[in-house]
């Protein structure tokens, strides 16, 4: 049997796959691993979102994959190019931890990331099918583009599927 593709997505990147294979991102801390999936057309996408809003960007030309408010629409557009239909798409999300117990504003970014992703998904009318968010631990996630299942690995809880 042929090994199926595993696409890797780094911090502040996204990617889309159709038909078969997996998309993976490693070491999510306060970042969000957001996946979109169209089960009818078997198109799946994953974004490794770092920060909530592009309004804080200091550069004029910024990387859209980095911010929740720009990454989700951009990922949606790319999925459409791969043949996904908007009405089929649902989302899953993982991550948004607070890795260290230091009460600084910048360290609550995980929570802000979660809230912003939810807000954007609601605006775009994309239902959230499942989530594994918050806490204070790291996660590695893998989206199976064949059936839309999302496998989540952490050192605290091992492997779970949502």
């Amino acid at each position: 049997m042929m090994e199926s593709t595993v696409l890797r997505v780094g911090i502040a990147e996204f990617n889309v796959l159709k038909g078969d294979g997996k998309i993976k991102t490693t070491g999510l801390g306060s970042c969000i691993g957001l996946t979109l999936f169209d089960p009818m057309n078997q198109v799946g996408g994953l974004a490794h979102i770092m920060l909530p809003t592009s309004q804080i960007a200091r550069d004029q030309s910024f990387n859209v994959a980095k911010y929740a408010d720009t990454a989700i629409p951009a990922l949606l557009k790319k999925m459409h190019q791969f043949g996904a239909s908007y009405e089929n798409i649902h989302a899953k999300m993982a991550g948004g931890s607070q890795m260290f117990q230091i009460e600084l504003d910048s360290m609550k970014i995980g929570y802000k990331n979660i809230m912003k992703c939810k807000e954007i998904l609601q605006q775009l009318k994309i239902p959230i099918q499942a989530e594994d968010i918050g806490g204070s631990f790291g996660r590695t996630i893998e989206l199976d583009v064949f059936d839309g299942s999302l496998s989540i690995r952490s050192i605290k809880y091992g492997i779970k599927e949502i």
Binding site: I11, T26, G27, G29, M50, L51, S106, G138, I155
Partner: peptide, 12 residues
């Protein structure tokens, strides 16, 4: 925890 998760906090 995982190295990547630990260090990404420092790059925000």
């Amino acid at each position: 925890d995982m190295l990547g998760a630990v260090l990404s906090s420092g790059m925000l």
